[in-house]
């Protein structure tokens, strides 16, 4: 148990993940940057004692990057499994992070795996893998990006059960900061109140708001002995905005919390 990555449950997501895994259902997690999607999956993999294969998706990700490819070694071609194939063979969790970043046609290879067939045909080698019971497919994305070029194909989306994440309520977020970095509760409370003040600016003055991850960074700096105001400025303000006037206002919020 000790080696599990720290994860503070927000609701019934742990139970839901376990049910999905037991019933061999693929899972889609959506939520803003840094709210704990990746950490949750890592935690669950450790909890269920399954190997975890994470793929950070990007524009140029091809189906071969997921499934595998032939390599030339010593004049011979050797088949090398991609992370998806490896997860299927070993019966682990394959986690595709930011799946919308991958091109839509790439994610089509997931289709036969994500419905009740649970198979992975590898046309290059002529193999057809049947996923063992313990295999699970998890994908995640951030719906906040206003990226109209990208989005999941509805036909891909329809194969998953979905879990929406958001930043945790203040009390839980404080607990996360304490659990993650060991700072005192008062400081945690203040950091969370700053973050919630910044979150009120979403879509208005800030494109992205303070994530739990950034708060953890700030808390880590403070725990290390850094002045709280300085820690917040570098972990939160300067990370979130390039606009000098917005930065001044954000600093005022920090001063309003930590005093000056």
């Amino acid at each position: 148990m000790e080696n599990h990555p720290f994860y503070q449950a927000q609701g019934s997501e742990i139970e839901l993940f376990e049910r999905a895994w037991r019933n061999r259902l693929p899972l889609l997690i959506k939520g803003p940057t840094g709210c704990g999607k990746t950490r949750f999956v890592a935690h669950m993999a450790a909890k269920l004692n399954l190997p975890l294969y994470t793929v950070a998706c990007h524009d140029d990700l091809t189906a071969a990057d997921l499934v595998g490819r032939h390599l030339i070694l010593d004049g011979q071609t050797v088949w090398s499994d991609g992370p998806l194939t490896r997860a299927v063979r070993e019966g682990g969790i394959c986690y595709l992070d930011e799946v919308v970043e991958a091109r839509k046609d790439t994610t089509v290879v997931l289709h036969p795996l994500a419905d009740d067939r649970r198979i992975l045909p590898i046309d290059r080698t002529g193999e057809q893998l049947v996923a063992p019971a313990s295999f699970m497919l998890v994908v995640s994305y951030n719906p906040g990006y206003q990226n109209f070029l990208k989005g999941m194909k509805p036909s891909t989306r329809q194969r998953f059960i979905s879990l929406a994440f958001d930043f945790p309520p203040a009390k839980q977020e404080e607990a996360i900061l304490v659990g993650e970095t060991g700072i005192d509760e008062m400081t945690a409370k203040r950091l969370v109140s700053i973050a919630n003040a910044f979150r009120a600016l979403r879509d208005h003055d800030l494109e992205e708001v303070a994530s739990t991850r950034l708060l953890v960074y700030a808390a880590t700096l403070i725990k290390d002995g850094c002045d709280p105001t300085l820690a917040c400025r570098s972990a939160l303000v300067e990370t979130l905005t390039d606009d000098p006037e917005t930065a001044v206002a954000l600093r005022e919020v920090i001063d309003a919390t930590f005093g000056r």
Binding site: A197, A200, H204, E245, A249
Partner: peptide, 12 residues
Amino acid sequence: SKTAAIFFRALG
């Protein structure tokens, strides 16, 4: 004004 406006919104 700009600082004040953002400050106002940040404070709810």
